[in-house]
Amino acid sequence: MMAATLAIVVSLFMIIVAVVKRGLPAMSWDMVSKIPGGGFYIGKEGGLLNAIIGSLYIVLGSITLGLSFSLPIVLYINLYLPEKSRLAQFTRLSFDVLFGIPSIVYGAFGFTIMVYLGLRSSLLAGILTVTMLIIPILIRSIDEVVRRVPKEMKDAALSLGATRSETIRVILRQVVPGIITAVLLSVGRGIGDAASVLFTAGYTDSIPTSLSQPVATLPLAIFFQLSSPIAEVQDRAYAAALILTFIVLILSLAGRYYSRKYSKNKI
């Protein structure tokens, strides 16, 4: 049994070592500060700035959008509905199920909507698709913390004459660390997912200046450039893999730090 646990830990290290070993020699300052020269698939010059900025745009947009949908839903099922409400349980179940839907299905769905509306692959479509992908994550993990807020706190606010919507302010203040953890979790998922943006965000060499332009992302930078026959372009893919792994590691550590610092009953 210890061997099985050890095997899992070792495979994690194998992955990280493989990515770092191949990615580190390919890293340079140009890689993170320049857009690719002469086309991302054939051009030997330049770096990944288009993909880095693109991923940031997508993640920032979808987190903002995602929070403005998921916070009201979580607060509603916890503050307004009675404790054993059918609707609340059904909502939780349905987001548990949506959480399991693969990102490629969200991508395909986003694509059908785009075709229906006559849109082309763009930053906006990418943001919307990634938002669909992360809303279940946000709702599940924020719900977890809001549920743990002592009932007395809500009752105290109500008994002082606050309306239900005014208790939200009291509850929100309690769960800020939980929201931050949820956001970090979904940033990690959103930034690393390729299948959802494959159909919807497209790929480009430049940095988009409006919502209707296509946008490059880090996971697709890896996916597309890895299949190029030119070594310099492949190097860019491995460097992107290293950057992505690094980002995810930081996010994971930060999430741990926050949830340990602010909650008592976490392992």
């Binding site: 646990t5 899992i8 830990v9 495979s11 994690l12 194998m14 992955i15 493989a18 990515v19 191949r22 979790l185 990690g188 998922r189 930034i191 690393g192 997912d193 390729a194 299948a195 996971p219 890896i222 996916f223 890895l226 893919a237 491995y238 893999a241 992505l244 792994t245 995810v248 590691l249 996010l251 994971s252 550590l253 999430g255 741990r256 392992i267």
Partner: peptide, 27 residues
Amino acid sequence: IKKIVFPMIDVLAGIPPVVYGVWGILV
């Protein structure tokens, strides 16, 4: 041991699919 292993499983869960793909191709 839990304190060491659980964060690692978290990291494993966080690694994007495309990076797993890169590992697959490399190793």
